[in-house]
């Protein structure tokens, strides 16, 4: 069984004071090893909730979800994934290298293993030389790269990224996107990436999951035929634009289904 993530009829309903909110409804999805999967959709479509459910930060209320054939809870206890949040969430009392060491300390790596992994992951995200800096001494883009290094440090095969570059400006974002592709190529990890930017999703992914809100559900799954080697100017090619158009159609379809578009 090579599926890293497998969801069948997955549903999640939040109970709130204003009644039930259906965050996910009847989601069926399989993610194979080594894929780069983007989740795209308007806010409220459940893309972040789905990612958090994979991470066992939310509990599904119906259907089944397995990570490497295990329940999400067991997968979390096995440290099966690294999670990159919307905000860097670096601890301000720790230096960058100590922040990257945080999961390694918790998981009981020896001092020499910690040092070796810190050096390797900091090289990987191009942060060498900033080991002794504190997070608040770095720019937002560098902070987010440090948080990616932290998620990579313990070698989980699955990387979950929740709009990691959402708060950054376009120039920094382009740069980090192409670095992320190189990193994916180098590490052969499976990546789940939440975004609300169509070009970002098309540029990065081998598979794009289009979602729509109320209730949160999958409206389209698009397999990308773009080559794995992707320079930034691939975004001007007809193939790229065709996929982007299909994503846009999928997003629009999801909206008209709801009947609330203008």
């Amino acid at each position: 069984m090579s599926a890293v993530v497998s969801a069948q009829n997955l549903g999640l309903t939040f109970k709130t004071n204003d009644g039930d909110v259906v965050a996910l409804s009847d989601v069926n999805l399989t993610i194979e090893k080594g894929e780069f999967v983007s989740f795209i959709g308007p806010s409220g479509c459940g893309k972040t909730t789905f990612l958090r459910t994979i991470a066992d930060l939310e509990q599904p209320t119906s259907g089944t979800l397995t990570i490497n054939g295990q329940t999400p809870g067991d997968a979390r206890k096995d440290r099966a994934y690294g999670y990159v949040f919307q905000a860097p969430a670096l601890y301000p009392w720790r230096t960058i290298e100590k922040n990257i060491a945080l999961p390694l300390e918790i998981m009981g790596y020896s001092q020499s293993q910690q040092a070796e992994r810190i050096k390797r992951t900091m090289d990987l995200v191009n942060l060498s030389g900033f080991e002794k800096k504190y997070p608040w001494q770095l720019s937002g883009g560098m902070q987010q790269r440090a948080s990616i290094a932290r998620a990579l440090a313990f070698d989980a095969d699955l990387l979950l990224m929740d709009e990691p570059f959402g708060a950054l400006d376009e120039i920094v974002r382009d740069h980090l996107n192409s670095e992320l592709l190189k990193l994916w190529e180098a590490t052969k990890k499976t990546i789940c990436f939440v975004t609300h930017s169509i070009p970002e999703a098309v540029y990065l992914s081998t598979k794009i999951v289009v979602m729509s809100p109320r209730p949160g559900r999958v409206t389209d799954v698009i397999e990308s035929n773009l080559p794995r080697e992707r320079p930034l100017d691939i975004r001007e090619t007809p193939e790229f634009l065709a996929i982007a158009a299909r994503v846009r159609d999928g997003l629009r379809a999801g909206h008209s289904y709801d009947g609330d578009h203008v």
Binding site: D56, L57, R76, D78, G82, Y83, A89
Partner: peptide
């Protein structure tokens, strides 16, 4: 913050680890 605590949860950190490495600092 909740995001800092979620981070600890993704590492499957125990109560004491979360206390010593996040909540007390």
């Amino acid at each position: 913050s909740s995001i800092e605590r979620d981070l600890m949860r993704t590492y499957a950190a125990g109560y004491w680890q979360t206390l010593m490495k996040l909540r007390l600092p």
